[in-house]
Design a protein around this nucleic acid. Structure first.
Lengths: 235, 235
DNA sequence: CAGGCGCAGATTGTATAAAGTTTCGCCTGT
DNA sequence: ACAGGCGAAACTTTATACAATCTGCGCCTG
Protein backbone atom coordinates (compact mmCIF):
# COMPACT_ATOMS: atom_id res chain seq x y z
CA UNK A 1 0.00 0.00 0.00
CA UNK A 2 3.00 2.25 0.15
CA UNK A 3 3.62 1.99 -3.56
CA UNK A 4 0.81 4.24 -4.65
CA UNK A 5 0.71 7.70 -3.22
CA UNK A 6 0.83 9.95 -6.27
CA UNK A 7 -2.42 11.87 -6.05
CA UNK A 8 -2.69 13.46 -9.44
CA UNK A 9 -0.10 13.21 -12.15
CA UNK A 10 0.53 9.50 -12.20
CA UNK A 11 -0.90 8.09 -15.37
CA UNK A 12 1.37 5.45 -16.89
CA UNK A 13 2.04 3.20 -13.96
CA UNK A 14 -1.42 3.30 -12.51
CA UNK A 15 -2.92 2.69 -15.93
CA UNK A 16 -2.81 -1.05 -15.53
CA UNK A 17 -1.36 -2.75 -12.55
CA UNK A 18 -3.51 -5.76 -13.30
CA UNK A 19 -1.71 -6.30 -16.59
CA UNK A 20 1.62 -6.27 -14.89
CA UNK A 21 0.53 -8.96 -12.48
CA UNK A 22 -0.97 -11.01 -15.26
CA UNK A 23 2.06 -10.73 -17.46
CA UNK A 24 4.40 -11.45 -14.61
CA UNK A 25 2.62 -14.64 -13.70
CA UNK A 26 2.26 -15.61 -17.34
CA UNK A 27 5.96 -15.15 -17.91
CA UNK A 28 6.74 -17.25 -14.87
CA UNK A 29 4.54 -20.03 -16.18
CA UNK A 30 5.90 -19.80 -19.72
CA UNK A 31 9.44 -19.94 -18.43
CA UNK A 32 8.65 -23.01 -16.38
CA UNK A 33 9.43 -21.23 -13.15
CA UNK A 34 5.97 -22.01 -11.89
CA UNK A 35 5.12 -25.69 -12.06
CA UNK A 36 1.66 -27.11 -12.82
CA UNK A 37 -0.36 -27.55 -9.68
CA UNK A 38 1.39 -24.76 -7.81
CA UNK A 39 -0.90 -22.86 -5.53
CA UNK A 40 -1.22 -19.20 -6.40
CA UNK A 41 -2.30 -17.56 -3.15
CA UNK A 42 -3.82 -14.14 -3.43
CA UNK A 43 -1.97 -12.73 -0.46
CA UNK A 44 1.27 -14.17 -1.70
CA UNK A 45 1.06 -12.63 -5.15
CA UNK A 46 -0.36 -9.41 -3.80
CA UNK A 47 2.62 -8.95 -1.56
CA UNK A 48 5.05 -9.62 -4.39
CA UNK A 49 3.54 -7.03 -6.68
CA UNK A 50 2.54 -4.60 -3.96
CA UNK A 51 -1.08 -4.85 -4.96
CA UNK A 52 -4.28 -5.58 -3.15
CA UNK A 53 -6.08 -8.87 -3.41
CA UNK A 54 -8.73 -7.24 -5.54
CA UNK A 55 -6.29 -6.68 -8.38
CA UNK A 56 -4.65 -10.04 -7.96
CA UNK A 57 -8.03 -11.65 -8.18
CA UNK A 58 -8.94 -10.03 -11.46
CA UNK A 59 -5.57 -10.98 -12.92
CA UNK A 60 -6.04 -14.59 -11.85
CA UNK A 61 -9.51 -14.66 -13.34
CA UNK A 62 -8.15 -13.51 -16.66
CA UNK A 63 -5.51 -16.21 -16.54
CA UNK A 64 -8.18 -18.76 -15.73
CA UNK A 65 -10.07 -17.71 -18.82
CA UNK A 66 -6.91 -18.26 -20.83
CA UNK A 67 -6.71 -21.78 -19.52
CA UNK A 68 -3.36 -21.61 -17.79
CA UNK A 69 -4.79 -21.25 -14.28
CA UNK A 70 -7.49 -23.33 -12.66
CA UNK A 71 -9.66 -21.67 -10.05
CA UNK A 72 -11.42 -24.08 -7.71
CA UNK A 73 -14.25 -22.70 -5.71
CA UNK A 74 -13.31 -21.88 -2.13
CA UNK A 75 -9.94 -23.50 -2.76
CA UNK A 76 -7.97 -20.92 -4.65
CA UNK A 77 -6.05 -20.64 -7.89
CA UNK A 78 -3.52 -23.16 -9.17
CA UNK A 79 -1.32 -23.41 -12.20
CA UNK A 80 -3.28 -25.53 -14.64
CA UNK A 81 -2.48 -29.18 -15.23
CA UNK A 82 -3.47 -30.05 -18.78
CA UNK A 83 -4.46 -33.65 -19.28
CA UNK A 84 -3.19 -35.70 -22.20
CA UNK A 85 -6.57 -35.17 -23.82
CA UNK A 86 -6.13 -31.43 -23.45
CA UNK A 87 -2.70 -31.73 -24.98
CA UNK A 88 -4.01 -33.49 -28.05
CA UNK A 89 -6.70 -30.87 -28.46
CA UNK A 90 -4.25 -28.02 -28.13
CA UNK A 91 -1.92 -29.38 -30.75
CA UNK A 92 -4.71 -30.25 -33.11
CA UNK A 93 -5.96 -26.69 -32.85
CA UNK A 94 -2.49 -25.37 -33.48
CA UNK A 95 -2.10 -27.58 -36.55
CA UNK A 96 -5.34 -26.14 -37.84
CA UNK A 97 -4.72 -22.49 -37.10
CA UNK A 98 -1.02 -21.87 -37.48
CA UNK A 99 -0.63 -22.74 -41.18
CA UNK A 100 -3.37 -20.24 -41.91
CA UNK A 101 -1.65 -17.68 -39.74
CA UNK A 102 1.55 -18.18 -41.69
CA UNK A 103 -0.36 -17.55 -44.88
CA UNK A 104 -1.57 -14.25 -43.58
CA UNK A 105 1.88 -13.35 -42.34
CA UNK A 106 3.14 -13.81 -45.89
CA UNK A 107 0.55 -11.33 -47.08
CA UNK A 108 1.88 -8.81 -44.59
CA UNK A 109 5.57 -9.36 -45.23
CA UNK A 110 7.79 -6.28 -45.22
CA UNK A 111 11.46 -5.51 -44.58
CA UNK A 112 10.62 -4.29 -41.10
CA UNK A 113 8.91 -7.53 -40.22
CA UNK A 114 11.64 -9.67 -41.71
CA UNK A 115 14.12 -7.73 -39.64
CA UNK A 116 12.09 -8.25 -36.52
CA UNK A 117 11.80 -11.96 -37.16
CA UNK A 118 15.49 -12.35 -37.77
CA UNK A 119 16.37 -10.43 -34.68
CA UNK A 120 14.14 -12.83 -32.82
CA UNK A 121 15.91 -15.80 -34.35
CA UNK A 122 19.21 -14.33 -33.21
CA UNK A 123 17.86 -14.01 -29.69
CA UNK A 124 16.72 -17.60 -29.77
CA UNK A 125 20.08 -18.83 -30.97
CA UNK A 126 21.88 -16.84 -28.34
CA UNK A 127 19.75 -18.22 -25.54
CA UNK A 128 20.26 -21.72 -26.86
CA UNK A 129 24.01 -21.18 -27.01
CA UNK A 130 24.01 -19.72 -23.54
CA UNK A 131 22.22 -22.82 -22.32
CA UNK A 132 19.47 -20.70 -20.83
CA UNK A 133 16.64 -23.18 -20.93
CA UNK A 134 14.08 -20.81 -19.49
CA UNK A 135 14.73 -18.10 -22.02
CA UNK A 136 14.74 -20.71 -24.77
CA UNK A 137 11.32 -21.96 -23.84
CA UNK A 138 9.89 -18.48 -23.63
CA UNK A 139 11.41 -17.32 -26.89
CA UNK A 140 10.28 -20.42 -28.69
CA UNK A 141 6.70 -19.56 -27.82
CA UNK A 142 7.28 -15.92 -28.62
CA UNK A 143 8.25 -16.85 -32.15
CA UNK A 144 4.84 -18.25 -32.87
CA UNK A 145 3.20 -15.26 -31.22
CA UNK A 146 5.28 -12.95 -33.35
CA UNK A 147 4.13 -14.61 -36.55
CA UNK A 148 0.55 -14.30 -35.37
CA UNK A 149 1.05 -10.60 -34.68
CA UNK A 150 2.50 -10.24 -38.12
CA UNK A 151 -0.61 -11.79 -39.63
CA UNK A 152 -2.64 -8.91 -38.28
CA UNK A 153 -5.49 -11.22 -37.35
CA UNK A 154 -6.47 -10.22 -33.86
CA UNK A 155 -8.74 -13.19 -33.35
CA UNK A 156 -6.20 -15.74 -34.44
CA UNK A 157 -3.66 -13.94 -32.29
CA UNK A 158 -5.89 -14.20 -29.24
CA UNK A 159 -6.56 -17.87 -29.83
CA UNK A 160 -2.93 -18.62 -30.41
CA UNK A 161 -1.83 -16.86 -27.25
CA UNK A 162 -4.01 -19.23 -25.30
CA UNK A 163 -2.72 -22.23 -27.19
CA UNK A 164 0.91 -21.24 -26.74
CA UNK A 165 0.55 -20.74 -23.03
CA UNK A 166 -1.09 -24.12 -22.66
CA UNK A 167 1.53 -25.70 -24.88
CA UNK A 168 4.20 -24.51 -22.53
CA UNK A 169 2.55 -26.33 -19.66
CA UNK A 170 2.02 -29.41 -21.80
CA UNK A 171 5.64 -29.54 -22.87
CA UNK A 172 6.75 -29.21 -19.28
CA UNK A 173 4.50 -32.06 -18.18
CA UNK A 174 4.85 -34.52 -21.00
CA UNK A 175 8.09 -33.95 -22.81
CA UNK A 176 10.40 -36.90 -23.14
CA UNK A 177 13.72 -36.37 -21.52
CA UNK A 178 15.78 -37.89 -24.29
CA UNK A 179 14.92 -35.40 -26.98
CA UNK A 180 17.45 -32.99 -28.41
CA UNK A 181 17.09 -29.24 -28.49
CA UNK A 182 13.88 -27.90 -29.96
CA UNK A 183 14.12 -26.85 -33.55
CA UNK A 184 15.39 -23.35 -33.77
CA UNK A 185 16.27 -24.37 -37.28
CA UNK A 186 12.61 -25.00 -37.93
CA UNK A 187 11.87 -21.44 -37.03
CA UNK A 188 14.60 -20.23 -39.33
CA UNK A 189 13.18 -22.29 -42.15
CA UNK A 190 9.74 -20.84 -41.61
CA UNK A 191 11.12 -17.33 -41.67
CA UNK A 192 12.97 -18.08 -44.90
CA UNK A 193 9.78 -19.34 -46.51
CA UNK A 194 7.86 -16.31 -45.31
CA UNK A 195 10.52 -14.08 -46.73
CA UNK A 196 10.27 -15.77 -50.10
CA UNK A 197 6.49 -15.60 -49.87
CA UNK A 198 6.38 -19.31 -50.49
CA UNK A 199 3.06 -20.16 -48.94
CA UNK A 200 3.15 -23.87 -49.58
CA UNK A 201 6.58 -24.35 -48.05
CA UNK A 202 5.82 -22.09 -45.12
CA UNK A 203 2.63 -23.96 -44.29
CA UNK A 204 4.33 -27.30 -44.64
CA UNK A 205 7.24 -26.27 -42.45
CA UNK A 206 4.98 -24.94 -39.76
CA UNK A 207 2.94 -28.11 -39.81
CA UNK A 208 5.93 -30.40 -39.60
CA UNK A 209 7.38 -28.22 -36.87
CA UNK A 210 4.25 -28.68 -34.79
CA UNK A 211 4.14 -32.37 -35.54
CA UNK A 212 7.69 -32.73 -34.40
CA UNK A 213 6.99 -30.96 -31.13
CA UNK A 214 4.02 -33.18 -30.47
CA UNK A 215 5.98 -36.26 -31.43
CA UNK A 216 8.42 -35.44 -28.66
CA UNK A 217 5.66 -35.74 -26.12
CA UNK A 218 4.69 -38.84 -24.21
CA UNK A 219 0.96 -38.42 -23.85
CA UNK A 220 0.15 -41.25 -21.57
CA UNK A 221 -0.74 -41.11 -17.93
CA UNK A 222 0.77 -38.28 -15.93
CA UNK A 223 3.72 -38.97 -13.75
CA UNK A 224 2.02 -38.72 -10.38
CA UNK A 225 -0.41 -41.44 -9.34
CA UNK A 226 -2.33 -38.79 -7.49
CA UNK A 227 -2.96 -36.88 -10.68
CA UNK A 228 -4.24 -39.98 -12.38
CA UNK A 229 -6.69 -40.47 -9.55
CA UNK A 230 -7.94 -36.94 -9.76
CA UNK A 231 -8.39 -37.39 -13.46
CA UNK A 232 -10.43 -40.55 -13.15
CA UNK A 233 -12.60 -39.49 -10.25
CA UNK A 234 -12.90 -35.80 -10.94
CA UNK A 235 -14.73 -36.17 -14.21
CA UNK B 1 -23.53 -26.83 -21.22
CA UNK B 2 -23.71 -29.93 -19.12
CA UNK B 3 -21.53 -31.82 -21.50
CA UNK B 4 -18.37 -30.30 -20.16
CA UNK B 5 -17.87 -30.23 -16.44
CA UNK B 6 -14.23 -29.35 -16.35
CA UNK B 7 -13.65 -26.04 -14.60
CA UNK B 8 -12.07 -24.22 -17.49
CA UNK B 9 -13.09 -21.01 -19.07
CA UNK B 10 -16.75 -21.74 -19.59
CA UNK B 11 -19.59 -22.13 -17.17
CA UNK B 12 -19.26 -25.06 -14.82
CA UNK B 13 -22.92 -24.82 -13.87
CA UNK B 14 -25.56 -22.27 -13.09
CA UNK B 15 -25.12 -22.61 -9.36
CA UNK B 16 -22.75 -19.69 -9.32
CA UNK B 17 -24.33 -16.30 -9.17
CA UNK B 18 -21.66 -14.87 -11.42
CA UNK B 19 -22.54 -17.45 -14.05
CA UNK B 20 -26.18 -16.49 -13.85
CA UNK B 21 -25.38 -12.86 -14.48
CA UNK B 22 -23.04 -13.70 -17.31
CA UNK B 23 -25.48 -16.03 -18.98
CA UNK B 24 -28.33 -13.62 -18.55
CA UNK B 25 -26.46 -10.81 -20.21
CA UNK B 26 -25.13 -13.13 -22.88
CA UNK B 27 -28.61 -14.36 -23.69
CA UNK B 28 -29.85 -10.80 -23.91
CA UNK B 29 -27.10 -9.95 -26.35
CA UNK B 30 -27.57 -13.10 -28.40
CA UNK B 31 -31.29 -12.45 -28.66
CA UNK B 32 -30.67 -8.91 -29.81
CA UNK B 33 -32.40 -7.48 -26.80
CA UNK B 34 -29.29 -5.54 -25.91
CA UNK B 35 -28.01 -3.44 -28.78
CA UNK B 36 -24.35 -2.73 -29.52
CA UNK B 37 -23.12 0.31 -27.68
CA UNK B 38 -25.58 -0.06 -24.84
CA UNK B 39 -24.13 0.98 -21.51
CA UNK B 40 -24.00 -1.80 -18.97
CA UNK B 41 -23.88 -0.03 -15.62
CA UNK B 42 -22.67 -2.04 -12.69
CA UNK B 43 -25.28 -0.78 -10.28
CA UNK B 44 -27.99 -1.27 -12.85
CA UNK B 45 -27.19 -4.91 -13.49
CA UNK B 46 -26.49 -5.54 -9.85
CA UNK B 47 -29.95 -4.38 -8.91
CA UNK B 48 -31.57 -6.54 -11.57
CA UNK B 49 -29.88 -9.69 -10.40
CA UNK B 50 -29.81 -8.78 -6.73
CA UNK B 51 -26.06 -9.03 -6.63
CA UNK B 52 -23.29 -6.78 -5.45
CA UNK B 53 -21.12 -4.84 -7.80
CA UNK B 54 -18.25 -7.21 -7.09
CA UNK B 55 -20.04 -10.08 -8.78
CA UNK B 56 -21.33 -7.97 -11.63
CA UNK B 57 -17.81 -6.78 -12.25
CA UNK B 58 -16.35 -10.26 -12.58
CA UNK B 59 -19.15 -11.27 -14.91
CA UNK B 60 -18.54 -8.24 -17.11
CA UNK B 61 -14.83 -8.95 -17.18
CA UNK B 62 -15.47 -12.45 -18.40
CA UNK B 63 -17.75 -11.12 -21.11
CA UNK B 64 -15.09 -8.63 -22.08
CA UNK B 65 -12.63 -11.47 -22.49
CA UNK B 66 -15.14 -13.19 -24.77
CA UNK B 67 -15.24 -10.10 -26.92
CA UNK B 68 -18.91 -9.24 -26.63
CA UNK B 69 -18.44 -6.46 -24.07
CA UNK B 70 -16.02 -3.58 -24.22
CA UNK B 71 -14.74 -2.17 -20.95
CA UNK B 72 -13.38 1.35 -21.14
CA UNK B 73 -11.32 2.54 -18.25
CA UNK B 74 -13.20 4.80 -15.88
CA UNK B 75 -16.10 4.74 -18.31
CA UNK B 76 -17.80 1.46 -17.76
CA UNK B 77 -18.87 -1.54 -19.80
CA UNK B 78 -20.70 -1.41 -23.12
CA UNK B 79 -22.04 -3.99 -25.49
CA UNK B 80 -19.30 -4.43 -28.07
CA UNK B 81 -19.52 -2.90 -31.52
CA UNK B 82 -17.57 -5.11 -33.89
CA UNK B 83 -16.06 -3.28 -36.84
CA UNK B 84 -16.32 -4.59 -40.39
CA UNK B 85 -12.74 -5.75 -40.03
CA UNK B 86 -13.71 -7.70 -36.93
CA UNK B 87 -16.59 -9.20 -38.83
CA UNK B 88 -14.36 -10.46 -41.59
CA UNK B 89 -11.98 -11.97 -39.07
CA UNK B 90 -14.77 -13.69 -37.20
CA UNK B 91 -16.20 -15.30 -40.29
CA UNK B 92 -12.83 -16.31 -41.59
CA UNK B 93 -12.13 -18.03 -38.30
CA UNK B 94 -15.48 -19.76 -38.43
CA UNK B 95 -14.84 -20.97 -41.97
CA UNK B 96 -11.58 -22.42 -40.75
CA UNK B 97 -12.81 -24.05 -37.57
CA UNK B 98 -16.34 -25.20 -38.17
CA UNK B 99 -15.72 -27.68 -40.99
CA UNK B 100 -13.20 -29.37 -38.73
CA UNK B 101 -15.72 -29.37 -35.91
CA UNK B 102 -18.25 -31.06 -38.15
CA UNK B 103 -15.71 -33.73 -38.94
CA UNK B 104 -15.28 -34.47 -35.28
CA UNK B 105 -19.00 -34.46 -34.73
CA UNK B 106 -19.29 -37.19 -37.34
CA UNK B 107 -16.80 -39.25 -35.38
CA UNK B 108 -19.00 -38.91 -32.31
CA UNK B 109 -22.31 -39.59 -34.00
CA UNK B 110 -24.83 -41.69 -32.05
CA UNK B 111 -28.61 -42.09 -31.97
CA UNK B 112 -28.81 -39.90 -28.89
CA UNK B 113 -26.97 -37.08 -30.60
CA UNK B 114 -28.99 -37.37 -33.79
CA UNK B 115 -32.10 -37.17 -31.69
CA UNK B 116 -30.85 -34.11 -29.91
CA UNK B 117 -29.96 -32.40 -33.17
CA UNK B 118 -33.32 -33.15 -34.70
CA UNK B 119 -35.17 -31.91 -31.65
CA UNK B 120 -33.18 -28.74 -32.03
CA UNK B 121 -34.14 -28.44 -35.69
CA UNK B 122 -37.77 -28.81 -34.68
CA UNK B 123 -37.38 -26.01 -32.17
CA UNK B 124 -35.82 -23.83 -34.80
CA UNK B 125 -38.61 -24.50 -37.26
CA UNK B 126 -41.22 -23.80 -34.65
CA UNK B 127 -39.68 -20.47 -33.70
CA UNK B 128 -39.44 -19.54 -37.35
CA UNK B 129 -43.06 -20.47 -37.90
CA UNK B 130 -44.08 -18.55 -34.82
CA UNK B 131 -42.29 -15.53 -36.20
CA UNK B 132 -40.26 -15.24 -33.02
CA UNK B 133 -37.21 -13.47 -34.37
CA UNK B 134 -35.40 -13.40 -31.06
CA UNK B 135 -35.74 -17.10 -30.45
CA UNK B 136 -34.75 -17.75 -34.06
CA UNK B 137 -31.55 -15.82 -33.73
CA UNK B 138 -30.65 -17.52 -30.49
CA UNK B 139 -31.45 -21.00 -31.71
CA UNK B 140 -29.55 -20.47 -34.91
CA UNK B 141 -26.43 -19.81 -32.89
CA UNK B 142 -27.24 -22.67 -30.55
CA UNK B 143 -27.19 -25.07 -33.46
CA UNK B 144 -23.55 -24.37 -34.14
CA UNK B 145 -22.75 -24.59 -30.47
CA UNK B 146 -24.52 -27.93 -30.28
CA UNK B 147 -22.43 -29.36 -33.09
CA UNK B 148 -19.31 -28.14 -31.32
CA UNK B 149 -20.40 -29.82 -28.11
CA UNK B 150 -21.00 -32.97 -30.06
CA UNK B 151 -17.47 -32.86 -31.39
CA UNK B 152 -16.19 -33.22 -27.85
CA UNK B 153 -13.43 -30.71 -28.49
CA UNK B 154 -13.46 -28.39 -25.53
CA UNK B 155 -11.02 -25.95 -27.09
CA UNK B 156 -12.89 -25.66 -30.35
CA UNK B 157 -16.07 -25.32 -28.34
CA UNK B 158 -14.65 -22.45 -26.34
CA UNK B 159 -13.38 -20.69 -29.42
CA UNK B 160 -16.65 -21.18 -31.23
CA UNK B 161 -18.69 -19.81 -28.36
CA UNK B 162 -16.78 -16.59 -28.67
CA UNK B 163 -17.18 -16.52 -32.41
CA UNK B 164 -20.91 -17.21 -32.25
CA UNK B 165 -21.53 -14.48 -29.73
CA UNK B 166 -19.62 -12.01 -31.85
CA UNK B 167 -21.41 -13.20 -34.95
CA UNK B 168 -24.70 -12.37 -33.36
CA UNK B 169 -23.61 -8.78 -32.85
CA UNK B 170 -22.20 -8.63 -36.35
CA UNK B 171 -25.41 -9.86 -37.91
CA UNK B 172 -27.39 -7.34 -35.95
CA UNK B 173 -25.17 -4.51 -37.10
CA UNK B 174 -24.50 -5.37 -40.72
CA UNK B 175 -27.23 -7.58 -42.04
CA UNK B 176 -29.03 -6.40 -45.14
CA UNK B 177 -32.70 -5.85 -44.65
CA UNK B 178 -33.78 -7.47 -47.88
CA UNK B 179 -32.59 -10.96 -47.10
CA UNK B 180 -34.97 -13.82 -46.55
CA UNK B 181 -35.07 -16.02 -43.47
CA UNK B 182 -31.78 -17.57 -42.45
CA UNK B 183 -31.25 -21.08 -43.64
CA UNK B 184 -32.86 -23.48 -41.28
CA UNK B 185 -32.71 -25.81 -44.24
CA UNK B 186 -28.96 -25.48 -44.22
CA UNK B 187 -28.92 -26.76 -40.70
CA UNK B 188 -31.13 -29.67 -41.66
CA UNK B 189 -28.82 -30.51 -44.52
CA UNK B 190 -25.83 -30.48 -42.22
CA UNK B 191 -27.56 -32.78 -39.78
CA UNK B 192 -28.45 -35.15 -42.60
CA UNK B 193 -24.84 -35.28 -43.73
CA UNK B 194 -23.65 -35.86 -40.18
CA UNK B 195 -26.14 -38.64 -39.80
CA UNK B 196 -24.87 -40.32 -42.95
CA UNK B 197 -21.32 -39.76 -41.77
CA UNK B 198 -20.59 -38.05 -45.05
CA UNK B 199 -17.68 -35.89 -44.07
CA UNK B 200 -17.17 -34.24 -47.42
CA UNK B 201 -20.78 -33.19 -47.79
CA UNK B 202 -21.05 -32.06 -44.20
CA UNK B 203 -17.95 -29.89 -44.47
CA UNK B 204 -19.08 -28.43 -47.76
CA UNK B 205 -22.54 -27.66 -46.43
CA UNK B 206 -21.18 -26.00 -43.34
CA UNK B 207 -18.83 -23.92 -45.42
CA UNK B 208 -21.48 -22.78 -47.85
CA UNK B 209 -23.80 -22.07 -44.96
CA UNK B 210 -21.24 -19.74 -43.42
CA UNK B 211 -20.50 -18.16 -46.77
CA UNK B 212 -24.16 -17.50 -47.28
CA UNK B 213 -24.51 -15.83 -43.92
CA UNK B 214 -21.54 -13.61 -44.62
CA UNK B 215 -22.82 -12.83 -48.09
CA UNK B 216 -25.95 -11.44 -46.49
CA UNK B 217 -23.87 -8.86 -44.67
CA UNK B 218 -23.06 -5.41 -45.89
CA UNK B 219 -19.61 -4.87 -44.45
CA UNK B 220 -19.11 -1.27 -45.30
CA UNK B 221 -19.53 1.68 -43.03
CA UNK B 222 -21.82 1.26 -40.07
CA UNK B 223 -25.21 2.89 -40.08
CA UNK B 224 -24.54 5.67 -37.59
CA UNK B 225 -22.30 8.54 -38.63
CA UNK B 226 -21.02 8.67 -35.11
CA UNK B 227 -19.84 5.11 -35.28
CA UNK B 228 -18.08 5.78 -38.55
CA UNK B 229 -16.25 8.59 -36.88
CA UNK B 230 -15.14 6.45 -34.00
CA UNK B 231 -13.95 3.88 -36.49
CA UNK B 232 -11.87 6.31 -38.47
CA UNK B 233 -10.41 8.25 -35.60
CA UNK B 234 -10.18 5.56 -32.97
CA UNK B 235 -7.95 3.27 -34.93
C1' DC C 1 -24.17 35.87 -27.82
C1' DA C 2 -20.39 32.38 -28.12
C1' DG C 3 -16.87 29.95 -25.82
C1' DG C 4 -14.30 28.39 -21.93
C1' DC C 5 -13.98 27.37 -17.03
C1' DG C 6 -15.48 25.16 -12.90
C1' DC C 7 -18.37 22.88 -9.80
C1' DA C 8 -21.67 19.09 -8.87
C1' DG C 9 -23.52 14.56 -9.70
C1' DA C 10 -22.73 10.11 -10.97
C1' DT C 11 -19.90 6.12 -11.99
C1' DT C 12 -15.99 3.37 -11.77
C1' DG C 13 -11.50 1.76 -9.47
C1' DT C 14 -9.47 0.25 -5.21
C1' DA C 15 -9.03 -1.15 -0.56
C1' DT C 16 -10.62 -2.96 3.60
C1' DA C 17 -13.52 -5.47 6.55
C1' DA C 18 -17.00 -9.04 7.49
C1' DA C 19 -18.82 -13.75 6.37
C1' DG C 20 -18.59 -18.40 4.84
C1' DT C 21 -15.96 -22.52 3.78
C1' DT C 22 -12.34 -25.66 3.91
C1' DT C 23 -8.42 -27.84 6.06
C1' DC C 24 -5.48 -29.33 9.46
C1' DG C 25 -4.39 -30.48 14.17
C1' DC C 26 -5.80 -32.22 18.48
C1' DC C 27 -8.54 -34.60 21.48
C1' DT C 28 -11.55 -38.12 22.98
C1' DG C 29 -13.72 -42.60 22.87
C1' DT C 30 -13.45 -47.33 21.74
C1' DA D 1 -3.25 -47.59 19.11
C1' DC D 2 -6.54 -46.00 15.84
C1' DA D 3 -10.86 -44.02 14.05
C1' DG D 4 -13.90 -40.33 14.29
C1' DG D 5 -15.27 -35.89 15.56
C1' DC D 6 -14.62 -31.24 17.36
C1' DG D 7 -12.33 -26.73 16.98
C1' DA D 8 -9.27 -23.27 15.49
C1' DA D 9 -6.67 -21.10 11.79
C1' DA D 10 -6.19 -19.77 7.06
C1' DC D 11 -8.06 -18.89 2.97
C1' DT D 12 -11.37 -17.48 -0.35
C1' DT D 13 -15.67 -15.14 -1.24
C1' DT D 14 -18.72 -11.34 -0.80
C1' DA D 15 -20.14 -6.84 0.64
C1' DT D 16 -19.38 -2.17 1.80
C1' DA D 17 -16.92 2.11 2.19
C1' DC D 18 -13.67 5.33 0.31
C1' DA D 19 -11.02 7.64 -3.36
C1' DA D 20 -10.27 8.92 -8.09
C1' DT D 21 -12.18 10.00 -12.45
C1' DC D 22 -15.35 11.40 -15.95
C1' DT D 23 -19.65 13.73 -17.79
C1' DG D 24 -22.93 17.41 -17.85
C1' DC D 25 -24.73 21.68 -16.71
C1' DG D 26 -24.42 26.37 -15.25
C1' DC D 27 -21.94 30.53 -14.89
C1' DC D 28 -18.75 33.78 -16.02
C1' DT D 29 -16.05 36.31 -19.33
C1' DG D 30 -14.73 38.36 -23.77
Amino acid sequence: MAAKSRPKSDAPDASDRVSRIREGVTAAILEHRLLPGTKLGEDEIGEIYGASRTLVRTALQQLAHEGIVDIEKNRGAFVARPTPADAREVFEARRLIEPTIVDHAIDAVSPAWIDRLQRHLAEEREAELRGDARASVRLSGDFHRLVAEMSGHSIYLGFLKELIARSSLIILLYRRHDTPACGTDHHAGIVAAIRKRDSGTARAQMLSHLNEIEAELFLKDPAADELRLADVLGL
